[in-house]
């Protein structure tokens, strides 16, 4: 298969970027999208040109590193998959594919398609944890947890922190990301203890970092590679409002 690629190139955070067009030829349908970019990059290196910088690591859809906006969709065509899980058979021979970095004020571009998602770390540092010390804990089976609650907690905990939610949201809102963590811990007795504090601190940090407001479009859940539901956003709202009303 042959493709024309329109790729966003930007030297560094301060430079102005622009699209450049490349051709890749003779790509097998079983090649993954990122392998296709590897091939392009190898060609560029042979031509003595700077290869396209893009984030990737595990290539199994779990590390959350890959982050491409392909043909107008976060993580490209197909639902519940990360960029690294997209295979070229999803495209038609001869297609022109536009590849952009995540675009959100809170995710500045570092180079080409690589962005800085440190803001997500900062939100979690504000309260996305249970304050337990190593070793000062009860037996694992000391507190039974209803299976349904544990399962729901796991649904939310599946978040890989890739940033697709904020990158997709027309408001640049990180609510799905924040909600996933808050909700996951809120469903467990271990996390409930500091639930109110966590919800308030994480929302405050999210606002401070310049993320937008949720308007319930649901674009985040449509593009989330882990299919995390906006029901967790509802729970975050509930947790936050209940906490504030008790202040």
């Amino acid at each position: 298969m042959n493709f024309t690629l329109k790729i966003w190139r930007q030297k560094d955070a301060k430079s102005k970027g622009a699209f450049e067009t490349y051709k890749v030829t003779d790509i097998s349908a079983d090649t993954s999208f990122l392998e296709m970019l590897d091939i392009l990059n190898n060609n560029l290196v042979h031509e003595g040109k700077d290869p396209v910088a893009f984030d990737h690591d595990c290539r199994e859809g779990i590390c959350g590193m890959c982050s491409l906006h392909i043909n107008g969709l976060a993580h490209g065509p197909g639902q519940a998959a990360t960029t690294c899980q997209i295979y070229m058979r999803k495209f038609k021979d001869g297609d022109t594919i536009t590849i952009e970095p995540w675009r959100s004020a809170a995710f500045p571009v570092i180079k080409d398609l690589v962005v800085n998602r440190g803001a997500y770390d900062q939100i979690l540092q504000a309260g996305g944890y249970v304050s337990v010390r190593t070793n000062s804990v009860p037996d694992a089976n000391a507190i039974p947890i209803p299976k349904a609650d544990a399962d729901e907690s796991m649904d939310a905990a599946a978040c890989i922190g890739c940033g697709a939610c904020a990158a997709t949201c027309k408001n640049g809102s990180a609510m799905l990301f924040v909600a996933a963590r808050v909700s996951s811990l809120a469903k467990l007795p271990q996390g409930r203890v500091e639930g109110a504090r966590r919800a308030k601190a994480m929302v405050a940090k999210m606002d401070e970092l310049g993320f937008g407001n949720c308007t319930n479009t649901g674009a985040c859940q449509a593009e989330c590679p882990k299919g995390i539901s906006i029901a967790h956003i509802a729970r975050l709202n509930r947790e936050f409002l209940a906490a504030k009303l008790q202040d």
Partner: peptide, 20 residues
């Protein structure tokens, strides 16, 4: 380790009785 992780809020698979 299992005790520690459960206390941190790791959602391990559980049985209907609520235990691991």
């Amino acid at each position: 380790i299992i005790d520690q992780c459960v206390a941190q809020g790791v959602p391990f698979a559980r049985e209907y009785g609520g235990l691991l």
